[in-house]
Design a protein around this nucleic acid. Structure first.
Length: 869
RNA sequence: GCCCGGAUGGCGGAACCGGUAGACGCACGGGACUUAAAAUCCCGUGGGGUGUAAACCCCGUGCGGGUUCGACUCCCGCUCCGGGCACCA
């Protein structure tokens, strides 16, 4: 009985939903097919017509299919693309797939399905889902980064980097052949080693994160993710390809000025680049004539407070500086540190440890002997890998001095003259210099900024140091020991020389037959395919070995926005004329994607773009001028959607139940685009109601056109409703405030619902406003109203500012800032008239009686505030 | 620890340049239609109070101050939440 009752309710629910909902399941695929047949969203260069390039961050096609978060950003760009088209712009709105990467390779290891096949399947599913949502992509421009016709150019760009050096004088990349060489450098291996120090892509041996189970190195940002899944990650020293992104640090920082990006993202990039101004100072080593330790500091004004020197444990001078007596201590400390690196480095306030080398440096101003220590709180890769320790004015140095009993000398006092207990804590703020006098130099009494300037001049004049700049940014580790990535196009010869392949030799195609299972050896599965690795080089006739490492996942996304401009060109990555047409003057005009790419993809792509710019291959210094991040959509429970929590919403289910238009509208209505906000199943039902109400304005229950539709001219009220709606919707689209645009459209529908006669002149412009948001229902109703051409090729309606202002408006009368009365007045009523009305209003009189009026403030069309004693 | 965001009804949110706080949606309550339900439509809904009623009053945008005729909005000092970086000299 219970069961039958349930099924009855279910059936009723089911059948009612079908008879009451507009037929989205029919009309959505119908129009999608029609649009495709008509080629409605194809774009081509049309000189003289203003262009608009609106781009999504293309997805990684996982086996799980589209996540509910994908349609959020994609709908936003689609609304803008459709709106701009209707405004007469030549819009480029492409889509593709970023398909190389570890997740697919892992999937293949588990299922035995070849990554190429798995990618094809996943892409097909993603493409189906994207088409189901009715996005206006120009699918003829689709690209997939794993296509050899695409990655040919990714490989070519690598060779461009390899064949370039950064000329600091001209501040740009130049061909390596133009690198000035030292006289007498003729040996090929020596020449190669010399050039390697300048190439933008170079080999370096360094400690990396190696995961034995995965059989690959991992990027630093990937380590935590895999450790959480139970994999081990260890440090290994391996030879790796690096990209010299640090050469571009200053330009990457400076050009952020050109961009309209979220402040948080700009800030993250600035922090990531991490520019510090300061000085490098030379400390001669006692007993080693001619040998100096170079330190970097941002506080040269505290030079007189330096009481010891600390080198990074891996610093190249440690060997030479360690005295025989101290060797055992130093050696054991270095080993301890090397092992510690393998453990988590996360322990926040690790106690300071170190070892004394036995040597001393000489203070450049006082000649005092300063002990030279090594400690792991000094990092090899930042600054010069060595510091002058000023425990009085640096917290870390203070902690170290306290832990090891080293002297602390105060050389800066608080500006306000307060005393400061320097043994208790470091004083790190700016202040007034003291105890800072030696022969020929004194800083005493100078405020910190002036003290810095004085000491810098002294350092430069005496040759003890110079102004310098340091960046946190490090070079980009670019190789992976993976199969599913772009092969790095390098050949090695038996004599130790190597060369990058030339354009006519690209692409280096990924061999199809491969064993994916990790070998346990620190090399790519490609290394096992001997017939692919070992070849006779056709250009030189010499036996050669291919590079078996592949590129990281980020490579393909570094330039895809350029390939969309000319996706089928086999002769060049992008025709220069097409590049100029679509990229001038502001590159990608709108780029929307997740904030998780704030520093990785968005920094890497900017770097590659600048290299291409230096060669004149692209015409703008930056790729993406306006960037926006869509916020995360949480599960209905307010937690992040995840399979294990069971709160994942699948777009396929939503579209089946409510239609694509409802999903699109709802994701935009949820809240501000950039906000994190929870999904709500009840909420989408509200959107479905709105669309049904709209449908019933025009279509009768039997499917015929509503008899309420007339050819009447608009009344004044109707004109106001229409023009204020057009104004609100167009302004909100430009500002990406889709939630409030939809709210206004809801107001419109509610009002029209109550009209017995519904003029076409009211409904049709409204459908044009709705078309970018809900393209299917707008197209269907447009056709039902008798049109035969597409609504999406119409002009977006203009509004008349006069008609968008109401005739009557409510104003408030305040007494001392409190609302005491309201009144309906004609819009634009004069200040005098308003003031008179306020002062005559009984409720106002009641509050001002017996008091004297000090002031009356009149804000036309808004309020009158009467200020009384 | 440092850097960036944010905090508004029962919930998601709105309020553009300092000018009616709570648009729009959800949820909830009442009503109409219906044998009944669903769907649909109408009315109400920040909290408290006075009044038969029409109305009217007080409080209210995380907390404490300030500027202003007037503050969700600006300034100073906190609390909590989210994100990023993290021994960067």
């Amino acid at each position: 009985m219970f069961v039958s009752l349930l099924s009855c309710v279910d059936m009723c629910h089911f059948s009612c939903r079908h008879c009451m909902s507009y037929p989205f399941a029919e009309i959505e695929p119908k129009w999608q097919q029609w649009w495709e047949e008509q080629g409605l969203y194809r774009s081509s260069e049309r000189p003289g017509i203003p262009k608009f390039y609106v781009l999504d961050m293309f997805p990684y096609p996982s086996a799980a299919g589209l996540h509910i978060g994908h349609p959020e950003g994609y709908t936003a760009t689609d609304i803008v693309a459709r709106y701009k088209r209707m405004r007469g712009y030549n819009v480029l709105h492409p889509m593709g797939f970023d398909a190389f990467g570890l997740p697919t390779e892992r999937y293949s290891m588990q299922t035995g399905i070849h990554p190429r096949i798995a990618t094809e399947q996943n892409v097909a599913n993603f493409r189906r889902q994207l088409k189901m949502l009715g996005f206006s992509y120009d699918w003829s421009r689709e690209i997939i980064t794993t296509d050899p016709r695409y990655y040919k150019w990714t490989q070519w760009m690598f060779t461009l980097l390899y064949n370039s050096w950064y000329d600091p004088e001209h501040q740009k990349a130049r061909p390596i052949s133009e690198l000035p060489l030292p006289a007498g450098l003729t040996d090929p291996l020596e020449l190669q080693a010399y050039q390697d120090r300048y190439r933008l892509a170079y080999l370096a041996t360094m400690p990396v994160n190696w995961c034995p189970e995965l059989g690959t190195v991992l990027a630093n940002e990937e380590v935590d993710e895999w450790r959480e899944k139970g994999y081990t990650v260890e440090q290994r020293s391996m030879q790796q390809w690096m990209l010299r992104i640090t050469a571009y640090a200053e330009r990457l920082l400076q050009d952020l000025e050109l961009l309209q990006w979220p402040e948080s993202t700009l800030e993250m990039q600035r922090n990531w680049i991490g520019k510090s101004l300061g000085a490098t100072i030379l400390f001669p080593v006692h007993g080693h004539p001619g040998l100096s330790i170079e330190v970097f500091t941002t506080r040269p004004d505290t030079l007189f407070g330096a009481t010891f020197i600390v080198l990074a444990p891996e610093h190249p001078l440690v060997e030479q500086l360690t005295t025989p007596e101290q060797r055992p201590v130093v050696e054991s400390y270095r080993q301890e540190v090397a092992q510690r690196l393998e453990r988590e480095r996360l322990e926040q306030e690790r106690p300071k440890t170190g070892a004394f080398t036995g040597s001393f440096a000489l203070h450049p101003a006082t000649g005092e002997k300063l002990p030279i220590w090594i400690a792991d709180y000094v990092l090899l890769h930042y600054g010069t890998g060595a510091i002058m320790a000023v425990p009085a004015h640096d917290e870390r140095d203070h902690a170290f001095a306290r832990a090891l009993g080293l002297p602390i000398r105060q050389v800066v006092t608080p500006v306000n003259g307060d005393s400061w207990d320097i043994t208790e804590a470091a004083f790190t703020a700016d202040g007034i210099a003291c105890n800072s006098t030696a022969e020929g130099i004194s800083l005493d009494g100078l405020p910190t900024p002036q003290a810095k300037e004085r000491i810098l001049q002294w350092l430069e004049a005496t040759g003890h140091g110079r102004r310098s700049v340091s960046y946190k940014l490090r070079d980009w580790l670019f190789s992976r020991q993976r199969y599913w990535g772009e092969p790095i196009p390098i050949l090695y010869y038996e004599d130790g020389t190597r060369r990058a392949l030339q354009l006519d030799e690209l692409p280096v195609v990924l061999p199809e037959r491969v064993a994916f299972l990790p070998t346990g050896r620190p090399e790519s599965p490609l290394a096992a395919i001997r017939e692919w690795v070992f070849i006779q080089d056709p250009k030189t006739g010499k036996p050669a070995r291919r590079e078996t490492n592949t590129m990281p996942q980020w490579a393909g996304s570094c330039w895809y926005y350029l390939r969309f401009l000319d996706p089928h060109n086999d002769a060049w990555f992008c025709d220069p004329e097409k590049e100029r047409y679509w990229m001038q003057p502001n590159g990608v005009d709108l780029y929307i994607g997740g904030a998780e790419h704030a520093v990785l993809h968005l920094l890497y792509a900017r770097f590659w773009h600048k290299v291409l710019y230096d060669y004149g291959y692209v015409s703008t210094p930056e790729p993406f001028y306006r960037l926006f991040h869509q916020g995360l959509i949480l599960g209905e429970d307010g937690r992040k959607m995840s399979k294990s929590l069971g709160n994942v919403i699948n777009p396929d289910d939503i579209v089946a139940r409510y239609g694509a238009d409802a999903l699109r509208l709802f994701e935009m209505f949820l809240g501000p685009l950039e906000a994190t906000k929870p999904w709500s199943t009840k909420g989408i039902e509200g959107i479905a109601r709105f669309l049904n109400r709209l449908w019933r304005l025009i279509v009768e229950e039997d499917g015929s056109l509503s008899p309420s539709i007339t050819d009447d001219p608009l009344t004044e009220e109707q004109e106001f409703l229409l023009h204020s709606t057009v104004k609100k919707v167009s302004e909100d689209i430009e500002a990406l405030r889709f939630n409030t645009a939809i709210a206004q459209m809801m107001v419109f529908v509610s009002e029209v619902q109550h009209m017995e006669r519904r003029p076409r002149a009211l409904l049709e412009p409204f459908l044009l406003c709705l078309a970018p948001f809900a393209p299917h229902i707008a197209e269907e109703l447009w056709h039902r109203l008798g049109h035969t051409d597409s609504i999406h090729t119409q002009r977006f309606p203009d509004y008349d500012p006069q008609k968008a202002t109401p005739r009557q408006i409510e104003v408030v009368f305040q007494v001392n800032g409190k609302v005491r009365a309201k009144a309906q007045i004609p819009f634009g009523l004069s200040e005098e008239e308003l003031r008179r009305m306020a002062l005559e209003h009984p409720n106002v009189l009641r509050f001002i009686s017996g008091r004297s009026i000090r002031q009356t403030i009149v804000i036309p069309n808004r309020l009158v505030n009467v200020v009384v004693d």
